[in-house]
């Protein structure tokens, strides 16, 4: 990808953009919306976090070593797992709360990213940091959303509808049969954002990655192809991660005697 005619941004340019956030914060304070402080803190976090990641990416790209890429991927996965856990009202208690989402994302996001790098993009080496890290980042960001939404829906439904689950078990249904409706609903909720994003891509919105590549000087056609690739990867990755999380979560809701064990959920 030859970067031609890139207009680099100076700190002054970014400061000008920051004025917009400041103006919004001032307006919100004036309107007593109570969002002024939050806006400024979030704005500062955006700038600081992205600058740090920029520095880190530079180090990893320059080092060009598998160990560094693996380390960074591990940190990204760990943070995504924590975020999945944080977003659930009734998460699984103990290590399961963290492990369920993390394992599902690991199985799905990592395998899809490796598949894309090896079979589709064909980078040499396959873990080429400039490709591996951004692709994995986008995969994890999206699978994280899907898995968090699906697990939240699954555990909330089990909690709210325990009488239905037990009544169905009492009629001789297996846990899989007794939770069929709520498992379907959980997967549907987890997959809706990516289905909507695919349906609206290019019509309602120009996806962020494609826009970024075009702004960075890539030919639109190249940017479009990468965007299609990433959309399909995200759909597959999110879908399989969500299915895995819902299957693992359902298993954890029941014990070996097919009893609903809601005490395994925290009372959040």
């Amino acid at each position: 990808m030859a970067a031609v005619n890139i207009i680099d941004l100076t700190p002054l340019d970014l400061a000008l953009a920051a004025v917009l956030v400041l103006a919004l914060a001032a307006t919100s304070t004036w309107l007593r919306l109570g969002l002024g402080r939050q806006l400024i803190v979030s704005g500062i976090r955006t700038a600081v976090q992205l600058l740090l990641v920029g520095l880190l990416l530079k180090v990893v790209f320059d080092a060009d070593r598998l160990l560094w890429v693996a380390l960074m991927a591990g940190v990204m996965l760990a943070v995504a797992g924590r975020e999945v856990m944080r977003r659930q009202r009734r998460r699984f208690a103990g290590p399961w709360g963290y492990a369920l989402g993390t394992v599902s994302m690991f199985i799905s996001a990592f395998s899809v990213t490796v598949l894309a790098l090896v079979a589709v993009v064909g980078t040499h080496p396959w873990w080429e940091p400039q490709y591996a890290i951004p692709l994995l980042g986008m995969m994890l960001g999206n699978t994280m959303n899907g898995v968090a939404l699906a697990l939240d829906r699954l555990t909330a439904a089990a909690w709210d509808r325990r009488d239905v689950i037990e009544a169905r078990l009492a009629l001789g249904e297996t846990p899989v049969q007794a939770t069929a409706g709520m498992r379907r609903e959980a997967v549907r909720v987890g997959l809706t954002p990516i289905i909507n994003a695919m349906a609206a891509a290019g019509i309602v919105s120009l996806p962020g990655m494609m826009t970024g590549q075009i702004l960075a000087g890539a030919p639109p056609w190249t940017a479009v192809k990468y965007q299609v690739l990433i959309m399909f990867m995200i759909a597959g990755g999110t879908g399989f991660a969500t299915l895995a999380a819902v299957a693992l979560g359902t298993r954890r809701l029941f014990d070996a005697r097919e009893r609903l064990r809601l005490e395994r959920l925290s009372h959040g």
Binding site: L169, A170, L171, G172, E173, T174, R257, E258, R259
Partner: peptide, 9 residues
């Protein structure tokens, strides 16, 4: 027996 078979009985 599996729990679901017991409960059906």
């Amino acid at each position: 027996m599996p729990a679901h078979r017991w409960r059906a009985q």
